[in-house]
Amino acid sequence: MLFEDVELGDELPAEHPDISMERVVEFTKAAHMNFPRFTDHEFARKEGLPGALVPGIMSQALLATMIHRWAPGCRILSLDTVFRGHVVVGTTPTISGAVTDVDDDERVVEVDLTLTAEDGRTGVMGTAKVAFSA
């Protein structure tokens, strides 16, 4: 995706990221978050959760990855996410985005981002500013 081709209203190609237990364990190790509520379904259920949860910052990083695939070489300037609902490990969420602002002078676009859990509820909502090189 080139900056010249970006238009307000464009939708980023939706993805179904891999949030298998294997991936989540790998992430929690990299992020120093090796807590059982993220990696142990049984432990999480005993805490009253629907199952082990994908860490909010992992969902945030999945959204960043989607942006990189949409616009290779772009630079994410900011990524602001609100963690709104549970995203259970091993389910199939959908991540999506849409361009909501285009700054021709700065070559920066803003995108709305959503991670929708398998049950249709919003798991994460956010916005990002993305810079394109000249």
């Binding site: 990221p17 891999d18 991936r23 790998e26 990299a30 960043a64 990189h68 695939r69």
Partner: peptide, 16 residues
């Protein structure tokens, strides 16, 4: 850790 983080979230951009 940087590499493991990027790989765990399915990143495909070689910068990461």
């Amino acid at each position: 850790k940087m590499l493991a983080w990027a790989e765990s979230v399915g990143e495909t951009d070689p910068r990461f």
